[in-house]
Design a protein around this nucleic acid. Structure first.
Lengths: 104, 104
DNA sequence: TTTGACTTGTCATTTTTTGACAAAAATACA
DNA sequence: TGTATTTTTGTCAAAAAATGACAAGTCAAA
């Protein structure tokens, strides 16, 4: 079963026997805020992905996939989007690629 | 072939022979900003979806699907996310549903 | 009951988004 | 042509959202 990005960080942290304070320091983050991230009450900031990958020796590309899939899942979930949304999104990605569009 | 949400609005507008100014007024929006939306230089604001549906007599649910798929597609595209991202996202949506999680 | 680990609440600051307007560019058309 | 209309682009103050920081709370183990 999948987990949220916050739960993923928490698992990494506990498996590596780090306290919130210890990991927060490595991520240049307040431990209280890291707690919120782990409990899905704040978002992890994209700019810390590389740092996170280094701390736990993770593949950055995979971590990015975890991260962005999480953001997308939350958007779908929070807005009660129907099952077609992701299918349509995939088509639109292809369209954007084909047009080489510069979006906002 | 799919189109962006902005292009979709532009098509609706021109097919219905409205000027930017005319449609912008109906959407309570500055025509200059509507132009930017149509040209993928600004985002359409979710709060105007219902208004848009009314103006062109569209199904709001379908319009929402168009809208959110667009946002997701742009995120994927802008961040060069790999093809697994959407698959993972779908799994995470199921996970969120199963846990009835309240996200941010 | 003290200590360390974690959680929650709050708020000023920073960052991002939005609305609004001016002006330039493109288009239509007499 | 010249002029009116439409569309696009640039800019910026104001509004909204995200972030960092810190205080104070709970909880569990020693």
């Amino acid at each position: 079963m999948k987990e949220t990005f916050g739960e993923y960080i928490k698992r990494l942290r506990t498996e590596n026997e780090l306290t919130l304070t210890q990991l927060a320091a490595k991520l240049d983050l307040d431990s209280a805020n890291l707690s919120k991230i782990e409990n899905n009450k704040r978002e992890f900031d994209e700019k810390r992905l590389e740092l996170l990958a280094n701390v736990f020796n993770l593949d950055l590309a995979k971590l990015r996939t975890e991260f962005f899939s999480d953001i997308i899942a939350k958007k779908i979930y929070d807005n009660n989007c129907d099952s077609e949304t992701l299918i349509l999104a995939e088509q639109k990605v292809e369209y954007l690629k084909s047009k080489n569009l510069t979006t906002i």
